[in-house]
Design a protein around this nucleic acid. Structure first.
Lengths: 207, 207
DNA sequence: CGAATCGTTGAGCGAGGTCAAGAAAAGTGG
DNA sequence: CCACTTTTCTTGACCTCGCTCAACGATTCG
């Protein structure tokens, strides 16, 4: 059905959960702009350990760094259904592409988030890590108008959260319960409510 | 034409250990090219926890991401005496600067290293983290011709290593001893010798 | 030479991991 | 709509890797 896909008004595409948006070392034809759904970048170690190294939410580019002319070194996978718009990197020169203000800003933002996660993974407790994760997701979604009052979607499983925060799923579970009992979060059936965002931010160790 | 930066008037500067190359939120006047010496980017938490989030070795740009037009979010400090060349970001447009191939490549390399460290901090043991650190330093120095056989400089204190690897200085010490006794490293008085680089790389968990 | 800084070692502890099992959701096909 | 399977969540018991605290050498440097 490649033809059908190519026939679709040409620059949109779709991925199902667990489908690859990009594979390691395989130069992608395009940068995606995520219109809907979540995806993540990760690395799998030979013994099965997994670390998620980036989240892509609606409105994000995936990935700005491809405009620098290097192949991805980690695969990217859809977490939910994903609809995306293609921005071909081949057609326009990389020089032109990296000029796009949106792309430059996205690259800078992604770099900064990544640097923050180095601090969190290196120096923060389990509760601080999860608080950081939930705050970051909520605030990124809010900037895209995808929050509803104090609530937002949370399609990550506890195992996904574990692989982002460098913990185990069991410990994520216990920590979430601790946070629930302190009224820091209200998390049920893929839906997050944050009763007091300031309090949650404070428990994330650098506000 | 080939090297636009070469056309820029070259100002050179110097920093002593513990001197700031850049402060948080203070837009730097220039990107440095490190000619000699080491520096690091870090964040200090309010309770004194420190995480080092990047190392700058001779030949590195510090930092390529400033060409994206954002102020640094973490300070940068000299570890040793540092001699650097200034590449003014203000004079030529950012557009021109980010075109510079060397800068683009440096940015991509720094991004990739950072992503690798997310994996290491999230999922690796103490020995794997330190092995990763030592391998990375050795190989970066080797590419710059700063290794001598299996040896290279290692000005980092054990506390510095701890703050890179997300461990404590005491545990770094014990882990280094374990590595010494396994003949993975030979580390004395700021000097590192790697008897078997392949073996060290293997113990760093993703070869 | 003294004063910092850095490295080393020991004893005890605790945050988070491991293993296991069962409960609750969520998907799947009839 | 209902069985059935699979995934996710939850809880308990136990363990271990790395942390804390403290003291003492070893270097480095003024």
């Amino acid at each position: 059905m490649t033809n059908q896909l190519a026939a679709v008004p040409h620059d949109r595409t779709h991925f199902r959960p667990h489908q690859y948006l990009a594979r390691e070392a395989e130069k992608p034809a395009a940068i995606y702009r995520i219109d809907e759904g979540w995806a993540y970048r990760f690395r799998l170690l030979s013994d099965g350990r997994r670390q998620i190294t980036a989240l892509f939410l609606p409105g994000d580019y995936c990935e700005p760094q491809w405009a620098l002319g290097h192949a991805p070194t980690q695969p990217i996978m859809a977490l939910t259904n994903v609809r995306a718009t293609l921005l071909p990197v081949g057609m326009r020169s990389e020089r032109t592409l990296i000029h796009e203000r949106g792309l430059r800003n996205a690259l800078a933002a992604s770099l900064e988030r990544q640097t923050n996660w180095l601090v969190t993974l290196g120096r923060c407790t389990a509760l601080e890590r999860i608080a950081h994760l939930l705050c970051e997701i909520y605030e990124r979604l809010r900037r895209s108008g995808l929050t509803y009052g104090q609530q937002c979607a949370m399609p990550l499983t506890q195992m996904d959260m574990a692989d982002i925060t460098g913990l185990t799923a069991v410990h994520v579970n216990r920590t979430l319960q601790a946070m629930r009992s302190r009224n820091l979060i209200d998390l049920h059936s893929r839906w997050l409510r944050i009763p007091d965002l300031a309090a949650l931010r404070r428990s994330a160790c650098w506000a």
